[in-house]
Simulated scan of single mutants.
Amino acid sequence: MTPEQLTGQSQQHIAFIEGNIGLHQQVVAPWQALQAAAAKDGFNLQIVSGFRSFERQLGIFNAKLTGQRPVLDINNCQVAMDSLTVEQQIHSVLLYSALPGASRHHWGTDIDVFDPDLLDGLKLQLEPWEYAGGGPMAPLNDWLNSNIEAFGFYKPYAKYQGGVAPEPWHLSYRPLAAQFEQQLTLDLLRTCLDNHAINACDEIVNLLPSILTRYVKITA
């Protein structure tokens, strides 16, 4: 992977399988195999979000850091950002939204999944309760937990480890994601951020070592 591909500034490694849903070219076949296995067991496994570009992630991140979009805490309560230090603001945003250039969605190896047939008229929120016991996605979540490993996938954010909030819908294709984690270095990420208008850039650069280990490089 080139530095541009690793940081979401290029999509040359991406295959768009339907609409704007993109996957790394080498993830298409494993994904389709997983999807077919789910179908055999009665699940309509679909992708909510696949590849995400740097610019799209930058827009989300900046909007949250500047108060244009709400920021939630681990209990889904809105955070009073103006009462926090800049460092606290950055970590509050990172709880749910990846740093531009460091999002695993840039790689095309990571996807958010659901089954639209289980919603029964509800609107998907991508919140943990939907995938927990009693939630509409609970049957799918149980199936995923039992089957994804056989197809090379795992859940990097299955539980809260002091970084990203639990995301039971987030799957990562381990064989490639593990490689790309190693390729995403501090120097590469610093260069990327220095070339873009990201809010609180100086503070973020100072925090990069901890951001990488706490939010990105967490292969189990």
Rank of each mutant, 00 (worst) to 15 (best):
G133Q: 15
W107Y: 09
N141Y: 08
V86Y: 05
Q89Y: 03
D73S: 10
R104S: 13
S92Q: 06
L72Q: 11
Q68N: 13
G67M: 05
D82Q: 14
E130Y: 12
V79A: 06
V86K: 10
L122R: 09
S103N: 04
S83Y: 00
Q89I: 00
L124C: 08
W143I: 04
A98P: 12
N76C: 05
G67S: 06
Q88H: 05
D115G: 14
V79I: 15
E87D: 10
V71Y: 01
G101I: 02
N141W: 02
W107T: 02
Q88P: 00
S97G: 07
D112H: 14
F151V: 00
L119S: 15
C77W: 01
C77G: 02
H91V: 09
H105N: 15
A150F: 06
L140N: 08
E87F: 04
R69A: 11
I111N: 00
S146K: 15
Q68I: 02
T109A: 12
Y131V: 10
V93K: 10
R104H: 08
E87H: 06
M81A: 02
L124D: 04
I111S: 01
L124Y: 03
N147P: 11
D115M: 13
E87V: 00
L124N: 06
G101A: 06
A102E: 08
L95G: 13
H106C: 09
A102K: 10
A80Y: 03
V113F: 09
V113L: 08
P139Y: 11
Q78G: 02
L122N: 01
S92F: 02
L140G: 08
K123T: 14
D120T: 13
N145H: 11
L72N: 09
N147E: 04
G135C: 10
M137R: 07
S146C: 12
Q89P: 00
F151Q: 02
H106S: 07
T85R: 01
A132C: 14
L94D: 07
D142S: 13
G133P: 08
V113P: 01
G108K: 03
E130K: 11
L94Y: 02
G133F: 11
P136H: 12
E127Q: 09
D142N: 08
H106K: 09
Y96T: 11
L72C: 08
I111L: 12
D82M: 08
N145S: 12
V86W: 06
L144C: 11
L119M: 15
A98K: 03
T109S: 13
S92R: 04
L144P: 13
V79H: 02
N75P: 00
L72H: 13
E149T: 08
L95E: 15
G67H: 08
D73L: 06
G121V: 07
C77D: 04
S103H: 09
L99Y: 04
G101Q: 02
M81D: 03
P116Q: 08
F114Y: 15
F114A: 12
E149Q: 12
L84C: 07
G121K: 14
T85F: 00
W107A: 05
P70F: 10
Q88T: 05
I148Q: 11
W107S: 05
L84S: 06
Q88R: 04
S103Y: 05
N145P: 06
A98D: 09
G135D: 05
P139G: 12
L72M: 15
N75I: 00
A138I: 09
G133M: 12
Q78L: 05
A102Y: 07
S83K: 03
